[in-house]
Design a binder for these strands. Structure first.
Length: 729
RNA sequence: GCGCGAUUAGCUCAGUUGGUAGAGCAACCCGUUUACACCGGGAAGGUCGCAGGUUCGAGUCCUGCAUCGCGCACCA
């Protein structure tokens, strides 16, 4: 057969070239306006009365660029969205970015540090200008990367967690919680990060296993009980020794108070108390209680009405002690305290132990528990407007009663466990970049509202909010809330599904449920689809130091975005980590080309101009093939509906290559060479139909090459493939 | 300490309610003047981590163990 005689698009005569195609196709999509559900409804592509499909994009941090994990998230979400759109549902995928307060601020601080500039040299306003510039650049890079991956988000609704609309939502939420006494200001032991100079929440603390020495000693020679600690320097702040109530060794001392005149230059008053928390078998069975520098000790102190004495300041330096200790860093003071103990013959034992050191997630600094005045959200207070349920209960309820479904469901257990052990959420941060707390002070007055108070002399709280506070509002702050009459809010909330990484189930998923349940009285989403980490071919985490990072843009450039998308989806079930390698991506680049050539083959052999319209006289063989193909489409439709993208994508891949190309097309050759007209007609009709169906069902997975092929194949009255109805069998 | 996950071909992984072990990649052999070398065909390769149990039948269900990984708690 001679190609010159055929009416075939010349593009098909060359191998598929993603680089010539993808940007052009994306532009077509954007210009069509079909990413916006309003336009789809207006043009009759989406049925206004069909169940809407809505999803928010987990907003990437404006701290730089997207990595392959983001790409994986974008692909899974784009598959859901394109599928829903092709089914004619009003489909909204709402994009945005996250200001990520601490993460972004410390990133910019590091950049400035290289220029020898500190944030305090610049002042709050100028520093924030720098951060905003950086955030804007990051944002632009991220948007560009997203477009390269082919995401069909509605750019007209794009949001930022720190823009004006979201700030109004944050202030409104804060005010309501303040009025309901759910937000309070309290003096408590908090996780202080001396390096980042801010408080962080319990969830931002990362425990690191390290070797340490456990010292056993007495405060003084005549003190009756020995205690053990890994942090001798904190003992200058001790106000009690706690023992187990059932420990016979110590019962005689319980209730007595001992005065130690000189412990490293500090006078101590130590009361012996009995507390169930103390384990008889650990160390000496006696615990030196340091209420100011330990969460647990603070709780013991409350139970026994003990005084709190702070001995370490915000720079992790000693506030008391003799000249070898006062003003010294805790690590240095520790050595000197041990030295002092030795000199005074008080040290009884020294042993090496492994222990978990709390560190700050972002700065890496070692956490110093300190008593501080901070803002908290009370998770245990009954809320009158919510049937006297607590925030904890509001978080648990929808999972327990099944109104929110978590995939894979094993994470439901993890979620329960976390919520049940949850303590009040510390939401204030000593960070400049973020939502300023909407509270003002004047002398002894305190004022909380959405807007600043009238009159002179009011000073706003210096602190900003935990970035997850604004993230918690994301499903509805992006849809017009606090305006309860917003049409978007009415139509698209609760959202259909939330797709995100299992690593932020506590940070984000739980907080969204909290905020939505409390502020709107409804769930934020019906399904939570949790994806895993993308690792390298050997299963290692990708990191700069290992040099195994795969940049999604690099590989998209090299192999095409469709190939990257397929490689990220196939073999990746919810909740499991997946492995990524260039070989895998390459395999799907080949597949895109295979599809390209299948189209060329079919268009070459089937002269569509001669095809009988509504041909129904299929041969027995072709009827079997139709049955097989239709069953496949049914399976794929079902699997996508059930969020089993890894199965669906692999099935189309297998069918297209191993079945259609390798077997059916090969068996078609003799039919075209020697068959009757009936047989040829039947086969041609089958092949053309099958090609259309394959292109449609592959579209959510490989949108670029399928859209391009769709523009080439002869179909009457066609629209863009992205809004062409999903095959109904 | 509590909980979760993984363990299947050399590598990476599927295996849906129990019914003759699958795919991709790699390696091996063969073929290819046209849809595609970004190809096709073929053969090879597995005590399904270990030990028990249930069953006519177990990769799949139950119990125990081992190794690896993860989460939470403790961390004086």
């Amino acid at each position: 057969m001679n190609n010159d005689d055929l009416n075939i698009d010349p593009k098909l005569l060359k191998p598929y070239n993603p680089n010539d195609t993808e940007d052009r196709i994306y532009k077509l999509w954007e210009e069509s306006g079909f990413f916006n559900p309003d336009i789809c409804i207006e043009k009759g592509i989406a049925q206004n009365d069909a169940t809407p499909f809505s999803i928010v994009l987990p907003p990437p941090n404006v701290t730089g660029t997207l990595h392959i994990g983001h790409a994986s998230m974008l692909v899974i979400e784009d598959i859901m969205v394109r599928f829903a759109r092709m089914q004619g549902r009003p489909t909204l995928w709402l994009p945005g970015t996250d200001h990520a307060s601490i993460a972004t601020q410390s990133k910019v601080e590091k950049i400035l540090e290289k220029e020898g500039i500190r944030k305090n040299d610049l002042g709050r306003d100028e520093f924030l200008n720098r951060v905003n510039t950086f955030a804007q650049e990051s944002h632009d890079t991220i948007v560009n990367q997203m477009k390269k991956m082919g995401v069909s988000v509605d750019w007209s609704r794009e949001a930022f967690t720190l823009d004006e609309k979201r700030n109004l939502a944050v202030r409104t939420a804060f005010k309501k919680m303040y009025d309901d006494d759910l937000i309070y200001r309290g003096h408590r032991i908090v996780n202080w990060d001396p390096k980042g100079q801010t408080v962080i929440s319990d969830d931002e603390v990362v425990n690191e296993e390290r070797k340490a020495k456990l010292y056993t000693f007495k405060y003084s020679a005549d003190f009756p009980i020995s205690i053990s600690t890994t942090r001798p320097e904190t003992k200058l702040g001790d106000t009690a020794v706690a023992v187990n109530p059932n420990d016979d060794r110590y019962t005689q001392y319980i209730g007595k108070t001992y005065v130690v005149d000189n412990f490293c230059g500090q006078k101590l008053e130590i009361k012996i108390v009995a507390d169930d928390h103390v384990e008889k078998d650990f160390g000496t069975g006696a615990l030196g209680v340091t209420p100011a520098h330990s969460q647990i000790d603070a709780e013991i102190a409350v139970r026994h009405n003990l005084p709190t004495k702070q001995v370490i300041n915000e720079f992790a330096k000693m506030m008391v002690g003799n000249e070898s200790i006062l003003g010294k860093k805790t690590t240095e003071a520790r050595v000197n305290v041990v030295e002092w103990l030795k000199e005074n013959n008080l040290l009884e034992n020294e042993e090496e132990v492994t222990q978990n050191i709390p560190t700050a997630e972002r700065s890496g600094g070692i956490i110093e528990p300190l008593p501080k005045l901070q803002w908290f959200i009370n998770v245990n207070k009954p809320i009158i407007t919510r049937g006297n349920k607590t925030l904890k209960e509001l978080m648990l309820e929808p999972i327990k009663d099944g109104s929110i479904d978590i995939l894979p469901d094993r994470f439901e257990k993890v979620y329960y466990n976390w919520v049940e052990n949850l303590r009040d959420w510390c939401i204030s941060r000593q960070i400049w970049y973020g939502h300023r707390i909407p509270v003002w002070y004047r002398n002894d007055e305190i004022y909380c509202d959405i807007d600043a108070p009238e009159g002179d002399g009011w000073i706003q709280d210096e602190d900003t909010l935990d970035t997850w506070f604004s993230s918690g509002l994301w499903t509805f702050s992006t849809l017009g809330w606090p305006d309860m009459d917003s049409p978007d809010l009415k139509k698209y909330h609760p959202t259909t599904v939330l797709e995100t990484g299992y690593d932020i189930i506590f940070f984000w998923v739980a907080r969204m449920i909290l905020m939505s349940q409390y502020l709107l009285g409804e769930i934020p989403f019906e399904t939570v689809y949790l994806h895993g980490l993308v690792r390298d071919a050997k299963g290692r985490k990708m990191s700069k130091s290992l040099g195994n990072i795969i940049d999604p843009l690099d590989v998209a450039e090299k192999y095409g975005a469709d190939a990257v998308r397929m490689s990220l989806v196939i073999g990746t079930g919810p909740g499991n980590d997946s492995k990524m390698s260039e070989d895998k991506i390459k395999a799907y680049k080949h597949f895109a080309n295979k599809l390209w050539n299948i189209t060329r083959f079919i268009l070459t052999y089937t002269d569509t101009t001669k095809l009988e319209k509504n041909f129904q006289n299929f041969t027995e063989t072709d009827l079997d093939l139709i049955k097989e193909r239709n069953e496949l489409v049914n399976t794929i439709t079902k699997e996508i509906t059930e969020y089993k993208f890894y199965l669906a994508s692999d099935k189309i891949y297998q069918y297209t290559w191993a079945r259609l190309a390798d077997v059916i097309l090969e068996e078609s050759r003799p039919i075209y060479a020697n068959g009757t007209n009936e047989e040829k007609n039947s086969r041609s009709q089958f092949l053309i139909e099958t090609l259309e169906i394959i292109i449609k069902t592959l579209h959510p997975f490989m949108p670029f090459v399928t859209e391009e092929l769709w523009s080439i194949i002869p179909v009457e009255n066609k629209n863009l493939l992205m809004v062409t109805p999903w095959p109904e069998i």
